[in-house]
Design a protein around this nucleic acid. Structure first.
Lengths: 266, 266
DNA sequence: ATGTCTTACGGAAGACGTAATAATA
DNA sequence: TATTATTACGTCTTCCGTAAGACAT
């Protein structure tokens, strides 16, 4: 019945309520949106938008169509994304980005039609992203303690180190036994990792980190010491348990292949 | 992502597993189906059909896509049909057809984009049709005793008459009191109305009918007599209670307007 | 040999953008 | 007057059918 470009023009205009922004999002001219929507209204036989040159609003019929069409159309697109292997991936931290890129590269070789967008997530965000469907998979530090998320198994294991201020007397030592942590001012989680390192650098506390941080977050104000006796930091993929999918298992398999193929943590 | 004609070609070919029949159903050439499906497969990045010049079958990916795409696409079309006012209507009996056509004509005036297919149903069929979604609304004799169906109110009320064989001594009388029915061989329901009238004509029994039957089913072998004292026969619209919809209420309203506007039973 | 899917190619429909116009605040 | 939607029109993609080819039974 309706053509794809009509559906997308209608739904986007229903979101934006503005022909210019709609055209921009759809990478066409505003003219096209105007004509497409007009044609769609003729076809449906009812006005879908009230519009003056100053305001755009959905009519009752438009609201009804949007409410019914949006979920259905989303499902259509989800179906083709799944069959084409399109997966969106997030990573946490700089090293994760490096590693994810290698995984995605290998995955793309096997799914040439798949689009695999990669985004960076902050430590505090990734759980929400996965649960809300912002991304399908994320490379995150284990263990995952969020209910509803599933883990794909450890991919990277790295030594745990301690980030301390370069000014701190600790910085002169070779290593710190893990038992000493109890006596040190360990920083609480913050929104971004750089933020926490800045706190470390200013001497407000210390922070246990993975070994890769030494290389990816080298700073003059922060020193990194081995945390002797500590458990290693482990990384792996995570996803929304109920939305698990042929695509995510495929991506997880590829990730483990990349690891076995000699790729190791930074 | 996918174009309408691609989706329809894919889903139809998934049904038919035959390019020729698919092309026929879609009113295009087989060439088009071949090219469209080929393009779709390139776009998705996976073969959707195994095919030789002798056999067509869905691949695993094709099966998956079909299973996910079909319900989503059906929803898209249902949304469009609802907003455009498209309704499918069935009627029972010849007089019902006349009346339904008048209702539909008026309805179409108000919903110029609506397609309103009209079909005839046999007495024994209409409930199944409504429950299965074969049609959205039906004009049927009341009362409706099928659970799950809703009634739109009496539209037509006509005198009840008795169909008897022209050979029967009864045929000579002016009328039959309803009390006498208990002593007469009333025919049980059969698949079609003509079938039952044939039984009446052959003298196997009598049949209470609505007054319009006298005019629409006049036969030399059947005579119609007033059934004095009997309740009238009532007709009205029926629909699937849970799928009730702006369209069916609109159609029901139009039907009542047509009745009030001076249109009466045959 | 026949039925069936695919490739080659010319024609038509319509999707698209630029420029000019109308309408609102 | 400035912003925004609509109309007019020419271009160009691509959808489509006919005819010929390839393939399987």
């Amino acid at each position: 019945m309706l053509e794809r470009h009509e559906i997308e023009a209608f739904l986007t205009l229903g979101d934006e309520l503005h022909f210019g922004r709609t055209a921009e999002r759809l990478h066409v001219s505003t003219t096209r949106i105007s004509q497409t929507v007009a044609k769609l209204e003729r076809r449906v036989g009812a006005a879908l938008f009230h519009r003056t040159s100053r305001r755009v609003a959905l009519t009752e019929a438009g609201r009804q169509l949007r409410d019914e069409l949006r979920p259905a159309w989303d499902q259509v697109n989800a179906a083709v994304r799944r069959v084409s292997g399109t997966v969106s991936v997030a990573f946490v931290g700089a090293a994760g980005g490096q590693f994810v890129l290698r995984i995605v590269e290998r995955y793309r070789e096997r799914h040439p039609a798949a689009e695999v967008p990669v985004r960076e997530a902050q430590l505090g965000e990734f759980a929400t992203w996965l649960l809300d469907g912002v991304v399908d998979v994320a490379l995150v530090p284990y263990p995952i303690e969020v209910p509803g998320l599933a883990a794909g198994g450890v991919l990277i294991s790295e030594a745990r180190m301690l980030a301390v201020s370069a000014q701190d007397p600790l910085a002169a030592r070779q290593a710190v036994p893990v038992a000493e942590l109890a006596d040190l001012p360990v920083l609480p989680p913050a929104a971004t990792f750089q933020e926490m390192l800045t706190c470390v650098g200013s001497g407000r506390g210390v922070l246990p980190v993975g070994a890769h941080v030494r290389r990816y977050y080298a700073r003059p104000d922060v020193a990194y010491l081995p945390l002797t006796g500590a458990d290693p930091v482990e990384w792996g993929l995570a996803w929304h348990a109920e939305r698990a999918d042929a695509r995510v298992v495929a991506l997880n398999r590829v990730a483990h292949e990349v690891v076995r193929g000699g790729a190791s943590a930074a």
